[in-house]
Design a protein around this nucleic acid. Sequence first.
DNA 1: ATATTTATGTATTGATCAATACATAAATAA
DNA 2: TTATTTATGTATTGATCAATACATAAATAT
Lengths: 202, 202
Amino acid sequence: MATRGRPRGFDREAALARAMEVFWERGFDNASLGELTRAMGINSPSLYAAFGSKEGLFQEAMALYVKTAGGGIWEPVDSLPTARDAIAHVLYATARAFTGHGQSRGCMIVLASPQAQGSNPSISGELERHRRGNRECLEKRLRRAVEEGELPDTTDCHAVATFYSTVQHGMSIQARDGASREELLGVADCAMSAWESLTRPA
Amino acid sequence: MATRGRPRGFDREAALARAMEVFWERGFDNASLGELTRAMGINSPSLYAAFGSKEGLFQEAMALYVKTAGGGIWEPVDSLPTARDAIAHVLYATARAFTGHGQSRGCMIVLASPQAQGSNPSISGELERHRRGNRECLEKRLRRAVEEGELPDTTDCHAVATFYSTVQHGMSIQARDGASREELLGVADCAMSAWESLTRPA
DNA sequence: ATATTTATGTATTGATCAATACATAAATAA
DNA sequence: TTATTTATGTATTGATCAATACATAAATAT
């Protein structure tokens, strides 16, 4: 398939990365097209030609976020040797990720559109599905640990996963409110200090 | 001061309560004036005559929220006999409050305008100040507990307060995502199970 | 009674939003 | 070359937003 027509005059990936930063910092609704095109260095017709719509651009930005900025957090969950390692990794990686990108603090998935009845239900719905997926990822890992004997079969995997997922969500708000990396690492410490009592045989 | 002029034709407090529900459910930006006036049963000139502006209406709605829906959570912190009682109260009261108001789930203070660079910085700033105030309320209570001998003076009050504040914020996201009261009470259980290790003498 | 004051309903304002129309530019295909 | 295809820049579209203008209604003050 040869390239027909006038070639694109901008770097699609670079422009998408710029858009991700804007969505991350401002959320879906508050990121205006003017702001997006300015950050991407293009005009709106180019944006629509390349990404279809503001919603389409956000979808791709979200995928890029999951793959890059938010990526290192969840991938290792299944490969780390113990459930404890996995959950500790999620919390500490979160503390680092949420405080390491300049102005963009906190999780895009949590902060981009928190209203369930937001202006774009399809966006809110997809973000919610993603958050639920992360929680289920933790719960699955805990169940595997029970099967493998790491944890007693009295462990309430659902409750423990919900707890750590809640802490991880809360760290987004704290990061947005200016919490330092040290403070978020401290939150992870505190959360992990509950591990023994949460996984003690009944 | 006698009442001059045509009397107001609607119940100001009732209208404000309706507005609070809309802001709570939809956030500041996504709550349109049309939606607000429809819920309040008035036209926009009446809204502006009574509340000044959308921002003014939100300020009053936020004050009402703090006094009513979110009120029982923080007031008892200073009067409860121990810091442990106080923090447990905050968490369990939060679990109940965030799941008991029909469609409005989660904390208005956390969810109404999460973007630090939102469309209305003054609103975002005030909400952030309020969240910080809640965290400081916990920290102050913990310091008092250290002074009174309830907790060892090795207790890291700042870290512990930040941790429980983070859990409380995270519960807003979980509630918005549909977590049940039982699940949030379970989160509170898990968080409190860290208490012993967090306050153990070094 | 008349004047004054405040509230209401209808209609509208300018601003901003996401999305496009249209003419032109820049590439390949024949 | 000429035709075709795709991208770009300028300008604009209709929709929606928060906020008001204006005439009228309903109360008190004198």
